[in-house]
Design a binder for these strands. Structure first.
Length: 839
RNA sequence: GGGCAAGUGGUGGAAUGGCAUACACGCAGGACUUAAAAUCCUGUGGCCGUAAGGCUGUGAGGGUUCGACUCCCUCCUUGCCCACCA
């Protein structure tokens, strides 16, 4: 039986106060954001989730980081927008529908509900009045509107082309959704199919998307590099070749793209992608036709994986026609081969066997000549020494791809090949053989999907079969319910959807039955949060107030896909005058994964730690604290059952401290009453405020927490036996509770209230300030080194001059021992830190 | 093949030119307890030493510097991205 009335920080206490404060936050609407031009805004956003069913630890980590930042910036006095929603269109809902005969909408909404419940349970401070989900017609209506604006601006087109086909999910995929030749969702080997599809001309913004990466100072370098690689800008030269038939008659002209114009005198053949339409054209009616067609068919049957296989032998067929190399008028054979990509450059390549490894292997296999035009030479040392000795000898093992000296290249002989790239391209341009150009790896974004659970593409086909946009006042084009799954494209099975009826004429037209890639939805949802009710995709003024997102948080897996598409939408909106800013996300944090025993948690592996269970056992504040303390947010986080107990223990210590040692006292101190211990306490309190403030701004939560622990360790040793000391302690306790409140909000609200703050939530408490002057100490411990090795520590006055310091240091006993009578060569003093004596 | 990031105790990690291993987890010993849990205290890189103390130590090797986990060069390992991209 204890006379102690103090509540214990037990799991029962935790549960009741979590429920209490979550109810208060909800009912007081304290997290609802309102536009206020007089206040500086701060927009915190996590990538909105797919409604997969339950929150996993990765979600919890992501949202905890966001929540701490949202709470922190609110306490800094910013007007914070912190909303959440769901990326609720997508294949899993539809696949479940097919498998279990469920309604995709009901399936999705059930999962959303469950996840919202969990989000509330971990105390996330979202503005629930701005809750959004992409399958609502009020949302996807604006997808359709944006699509039509792009259509009107010439950024949307329909084209028959060779596309990626996922045979399991039975839909086409964008290039970005094909990973190592497999569908990103199904994992099926992707096939190539020629189908008519809708594309968005993202390539029109390639240059801007690339250049503006420079402006994103607060993005991880890694993500920017990945985007740069994906856009893949390369400088090169287009070279024109005349095509002649067997009799030498000029029948055509082609262009090839090269980054190595320095090798043009070594061209031995020209090679087109097997799928290139010219290949059939040139061989039609010739004796080569049959052989060539057989080859094309063979290549087209291969899957993407087979074609990309490492070390795969290159195959080709001679077309019987020839090209004329413009630089030396040499007649060279034209080939078709499986190693040339149709969708990069012009789909036709000039081949230089001596200086390109692929061309080399191909030439060896088909016994084509090899002419050396760059001679290996030690170009690094001194001036180039023309050396053509042995130049006629073809390389035996491999192509020579390094820098060397030009040979067999007419007026370019003798110069360095890297210099020749520029000189040669200028010359080619002057002679009219071609022109310098830029090529991108980025391709247009294929957005049509032959699936149901997505935004219908708002298009109908007129009498001539020309696509026309649905009139804007008739949007949204809603998803029908009378569909059948499992019979190809579901929308084609709907009787109500199939035809568009012109309101004026009553005429029926065939509708487009494809839906949009769900990445279309997620490319602009963050602007929609600024106003969910407006009869437009968003309100210009509100968007320009809240946007750009100040802090965006999500997984690295979106480094290319989502983040590139969203940046593209931003550029488009700016172009049509809807917004004023250049980039949608100012700062980006890509959080690391949560692992168990070194492996990613996954249902299939059965190594899941359930957030609900942890909240049940330790409370959400402990869970949040653990996740932030265990690793920096960008790093992988290894789950540790014991360490979460440690988090609870730390919270318990603070709870005990505030409950037992916080005593009402008049907060007034005469500085003359402060002894050394009090001054130390005050110094550490101020230093901790500074450290935590700086750390949270840079999301170094782990070190912020550790500095709080250091302060607590100090407080435990601090004895309070006078009114002055009690005041010093009170200040410290108060600051600890406020500083910790973004991380452990439930406990801190409770303590704040029990410390006598009855009216206001701790969210309105204001962030503690520190006094720069209080950080300075009168003395400090100087580290003394002899020849760079630590030998002694001496307590000296903070403002001591090097001159006054030197004799003190030199007379130190252990310093003397290591100087050992040798003359002092140098005395280095780093003020406030260290002295080094060189002997 | 090209590019980027990282490598520190038994573990998670701290220090970005100035005391290597803060803080925490774990472990060991002790206090309290009839006992246990909880809590509190002490210790905890390696080697030598009873100790005081010394030597050594941040993937390997070299360099710059009074001084290097930190900067530079070479290499090794791991992770990620791109890749028959002409």
């Amino acid at each position: 039986m204890s006379a102690n009335h103090i509540m214990e920080y037990s799991i029962n206490t935790i549960k009741s106060l979590e429920a209490k404060w979550q109810k208060y936050w909800d009912e007081s609407k304290i997290f609802h954001a309102h536009e206020d031009p007089s206040k500086k805004k701060y927009y915190v956003l996590e990538m909105y989730p797919y409604p997969s069913g339950k929150l996993h630890m990765g979600h919890v980590r992501n949202y905890t980081i966001g929540d701490v930042l949202a709470r922190f910036w609110r306490m800094q006095g910013r007007n914070v927008l912190y909303p959440i929603g769901f990326d609720s269109f997508g294949l899993p809902a539809e696949n479940a529908a097919i498998k279990n005969n469920e309604d995709p909408k009901a399936w999705t909404e059930k999962r959303m509900e469950e996840m919202v419940r969990q989000m509330k349970k971990i105390g996330l401070s979202y503005d629930w009045s701005r809750y959004l989900y992409s399958h609502s017609p009020e949302y996807y209506k604006w997808n359709q509107w944006i699509f039509i604006q792009m259509f009107k601006n010439g950024l949307v087109y329909k084209k028959k082309s060779l596309v990626n086909w996922d045979p399991v999910d039975k839909t086409v995929l964008a290039n970005e959704q094909v990973i190592d030749g497999k569908g990103w969702r199904s994992g099926a080997e992707v096939e190539k199919k020629e189908i008519e599809q809708w594309f968005i001309k993202i390539t029109a913004f390639a240059e801007e998307l690339l250049n503006d990466l420079e402006k994103l100072e607060d993005w991880p370098e890694r993500v920017k590099t990945m985007q740069r690689n994906w856009i893949g800008k390369s400088y090169g030269t287009l070279i024109k070749f005349d095509v002649v038939d067997e009799k030498g008659k000029r029948i055509d002209m082609i262009e090839t793209f090269t980054t190595r114009p320095d090798t043009v005198f070594g061209i031995e053949y020209v090679v087109a992608a097997a799928e290139h339409p010219k290949v059939k054209e040139w061989t039609k009616g010739t004796k080569k036709e049959k052989e060539v067609n057989t080859f094309i068919e063979k290549v087209s049957k291969e899957s993407l994986i087979e074609r990309m296989e490492e070390g795969k032998e290159k195959n080709g067929v001679a077309l019987g026609v020839h090209a004329i190399n413009p630089v030396n008028k040499k007649k060279i054979p034209l080939w078709a081969a499986d190693y040339v990509l149709m969708d990069y450059g012009t789909g036709i390549v000039m081949a230089v066997p001596a200086h390109d490894q692929r061309d080399f292997l191909f030439a060896k296999k088909y016994k084509l000549p090899i002419t050396v035009v760059i001679h290996p030479d030690d170009v690094g040392a001194g001036s180039p020494r023309p050396n053509t000795e042995g130049a006629e000898t073809a390389p035996v093992q491999a192509a020579f791809v390094d820098v060397g000296i030009m040979v067999n290249s007419d007026l370019f002989n003798g110069i360095r090949s890297d210099e020749a790239i520029d000189k040669m391209s200028v010359w080619i341009e002057k002679q009219g053989f071609g022109k310098r150009t830029v090529t991108y790896r980025l391709k247009d974004w294929l957005i049509s999907r032959q699936r149901y659970w997505g935004t219908p593409i708002p298009i109908y086909y007129d009498d001539k079969g020309v696509p026309q946009p649905i009139p804007e006042e008739e949007l949204p084009v809603e998803l029908p319910n009378d569909i059948e799954f499992g019979k190809g494209n579901p929308l084609e099975t709907s009787k109500s959807f199939k035809y568009y009826v012109d309101k004026k004429t009553g005429k029926k037209y065939r509708r487009e039955t494809d839906t949009m890639d769900t990445f279309f939805d997620s490319s602009w949802y963050y602007i929609r949060y600024t106003d969910l009710n407006i009869k437009a995709p968003f309100d210009k003024n509100k968007a320009n107030y809240w946007m750009p997102v100040d802090q965006y948080i999500g997984g690295i897996e979106h480094a290319i896909l989502h983040l590139l598409y969203a940046r593209f939408f931003n550029k488009f909106f700016k172009k049509i005058g809807l917004i004023q800013y250049d980039e949608p996300f100012k700062r980006l944090l890509t959080q690391g994964m949560v692992l168990l025993h070194g492996e990613v948690m996954s249902k299939s592996k059965g190594n899941i730690v359930d957030p609900d269970e942890m909240v049940e056992k330790f409370g959400t504040d402990s869970l949040r604290l653990f996740m932030l303390f265990a690793a920096p947010p960008e790093d992988q986080l290894e789950w540790n059952d014991k360490a979460i107990e440690g988090a609870w223990r730390f919270l318990n210590r603070i709870w005990q401290l505030a409950e037992e040692r916080y005593k009402a006292a008049v907060d007034k101190i005469d500085s003359a009453d402060l002894d050394e211990a009090d001054k130390d306490m005050e110094r550490l309190r101020n230093a901790t405020i500074k450290k935590i403030t700086d750390d949270i701004k840079n999301y170094k939560f782990n070190t912020a927490i550790s500095s709080m622990m250091i302060l607590m360790n100090h407080v435990d040793k601090y004895r309070t036996d006078s009114v002055t000391k009690q005041v010093v302690l009170n200040r410290t306790i108060k600051d600890v509770v406020v500083l910790l409140s973004p991380i452990a909000p439930h406990m801190c609200e409770e303590l704040w209230q029990s410390m006598g703050n009855k009216e206001e939530s701790i969210i309105r408490a204001g962030w503690p300030r520190y006094d720069e002057a209080a950080l300075k100490a009168d003395t400090f411990e100087l580290v003394v080194q002899v020849n760079g090795k630590l030998r002694s520590r001496i307590k000296v006055a903070s403002d001591i001059s090097p001159k006054a310091l030197e004799p003190i240091v030199l007379s130190d006993e252990s310093v003397q021992k290591f100087i050992d009578g040798k003359p002092v060569k140098k005395f280095i003093y780093v003020p406030g830190k260290l002295a080094n004596i060189v002997v």
